[in-house]
Design a protein around this nucleic acid. Structure first.
Length: 532
DNA sequence: CTAGGGTTAG
């Protein structure tokens, strides 16, 4: 380091005296050394003194340095000044552009590269594929595949794995298998991505077959299988595999716990977490805590939630925004609104999600006025509300009977650039219905820009039950039966809204309907005793 | 000189 400084000073001295006798290799090496030593500013200074003397690799390293720090503007500047760009320069830029999540920009950039006469290589293709899959431009995947075949790049495992991901996003099984066959030397990653593809497309047996056929496996292979089973609602198969795993890590446990949360087996999820902690071999991560808090929230396990809270504090993770938000949600759902606002108050940094948790929690506790107050503070502090904010706000108004305030907020949404969705209409139907303004609720449903769903009909039905309005009630009931089976979660939402207010008649009505339509809902129960 | 696969918040 000392040597470096000396030679840098030496160089600077020479340049200021306009002596240009420094050998190119020295200048390049000096810049490279600075870059390795995190001396980006100094490297750039030397770089600017005489760009014409620099090697291509020095230019590329300069771009890399900026890209790695997320400084795309600076990277672009260097890239634009470069006299002759090579594939590496372009690839590095693609790498940085990936983070901007702007597929259009990536495509334009790629076309520019092609116009400049350069061919993509096995690193370029994945950059393009990843940028377009999952966007409106995924139709380009097949064309890029064609290009890759022409250039012989589809034989590469690296390029191949990105094509596998591409065909998965196209939900194209045949394409997935063809790409896999084309890969010359299939490595673990190729097999893992193939399995991911099978699982995402719902071909669980093919995934299992690949798993048994593959020549070598790593821990990610096992995780891929676990997640695949879980997302295909085969939690027991996941557990079986989990038990067979030789090497487990925090990730394995978190995936399994989260699997149980997803399949609503909250008790098992929490017991597994307990087991993980008691073994003493694993440190729960942010992901683990976040998943466990969700389980606590969904099962109203306040005691367990408190224990998790203290673990988080002990590990110095209390200032994490995601975890704080999960804590607020947990306390609110487990019934301790005071603890929830305590966590919220002491958050050093908030985000829209944390405000939503807080406002939603207040709404859940029937503290509509406080929810509105909190909303006002949110706006005053410069946070932008989103759809969820308004769902919480409107349900707060519905719970507290603030009809006019609710209507006002409903009208106000557009001003924040948020279009009313089904959930918002459901809240409004609920709000008006409870207040006995059934005709107004009916008119709102008729004027909606979309077809009413179970939640909306259910809200109307409940209100009709409340006000003994049989005629309209039948319309609502008929609306539901016409929809036949729907998402069970929809019932959950409504049952919760009703149950909170002790509105048992409509809860019963809904339960009956749920039975008729085979929707499942886990019975609410407390099992703190079983855990502690 | 650039490098692919597995999980979090309302």
């Amino acid at each position: 380091m000392r040597m470096l400084e000396t030679s840098a000073t030496f160089l600077r001295g020479h340049f200021s005296r306009r002596i240009f006798t420094i050998p190119t290799t020295t200048l390049n090496r000096l810049i490279n050394d600075h870059l390795r030593d995190n001396g980006l500013v100094e490297a750039r200074r030397l770089f600017n003194q005489n760009p014409t003397l620099l090697d291509k690799s020095t230019w590329n390293m300069m771009i890399t340095a900026y890209v790695q720090r997320g400084l795309m503007l600076e990277a672009h500047e260097v890239f634009d000044q470069m006299p002759v760009r090579d594939v590496v320069s372009w690839n590095t830029m693609f790498l940085g552009l990936k983070k901007t999540r702007d597929p259009e920009r990536v495509i334009r950039f790629f076309l520019e590269m092609r116009r400049s006469g350069l061919n993509p290589d096995e690193l370029t293709i994945p950059a393009i594929i990843d940028a377009v899959s999952g966007s409106g431009f995924k139709v380009l995947i097949m064309q890029i595949h064609t290009l890759a075949i022409r250039l012989g790049l589809s034989l590469s495992a690296y390029t191949g794995s990105s094509l596998l991901r591409g065909y998965t996003s196209l939900r194209n099984l045949r394409g997935l298998e063809r790409v896999f066959e084309d890969i010359l030397l299939k490595d673990v990653v190729s097999w893992n991505v193939l399995i991911t593809g099978y699982m995402k497309l719902g071909f669980v047996e093919d995934g299992e077959r690949a798993f048994s056929e593959m020549p070598e496996r790593n821990i990610i292979t096992w995780h891929t299988m676990l997640i695949g089973f879980i997302n295909n609602t085969k939690i027991d198969k996941a557990r079986e595999l989990f038990n067979q795993m030789g090497q487990k890590n925090v990730f394995s446990w978190t995936v399994m716990i989260n699997g149980y949360v997803q399949s609503r087996e909250l008790k098992v999820a929490l017991m597994l977490f307990q087991e993980m902690v008691e073994s003493g071999n694993y440190r729960p991560s942010h992901y683990t805590f976040s998943t466990v808090l969700k389980a606590c929230a969904a099962s109203s396990s306040l005691l367990m939630g408190k224990q998790v809270h203290s673990m988080i504090t002990k590990r110095g993770m209390a200032c994490d925004v995601v975890l704080s938000t999960s804590l607020i949600d947990m306390y609110a759902k487990a019934g301790d609104i005071t603890a929830a606002s305590g966590v919220f108050k002491f958050m050093p940094m908030k985000n829209p999600a944390s405000w939503n948790s807080m406002i939603g929690g207040l709404a859940r506790h029937g503290l509509g006025v406080n929810a509105l107050e909190e909303f006002k503070k949110m706006i005053e502090s410069g946070y932008k509300p989103d759809q969820v904010t308004f769902i919480n706000l409107l349900s707060a108004c519905a719970h507290t009977g603030l009809v006019e305030e609710g209507e006002k907020q409903f009208m106000l949404m557009g001003r924040f650039g948020i279009a009313a969705e089904k959930e918002h209409y459901a809240c409004m139907v609920d709000l008006l219905g409870r207040a006995g303004q059934l005709d107004k609720a009916e008119r709102l449903i008729k004027g909606m820009p979309f077809e009413p769903d179970v939640v909306i009909w259910g809200a109307l039905l409940g209100a009709c039950g409340l006000h003994s309005c049989l005629e309209l009630g039948e319309v609502a009931a008929e609306g539901i039966s016409r929809l036949r089976r729907e998402h069970p979660a929809a019932y959950d939402v409504l049952c919760r809204v009703r149950g909170d207010k002790g509105d048992w008649t409509s809860v019963m009505e809904l339960r009956k309907l749920m039975k008729k339509t085979k929707a499942k809902k886990q019975d609410a129960s407390s099992w703190i005793e079983t855990l502690t």
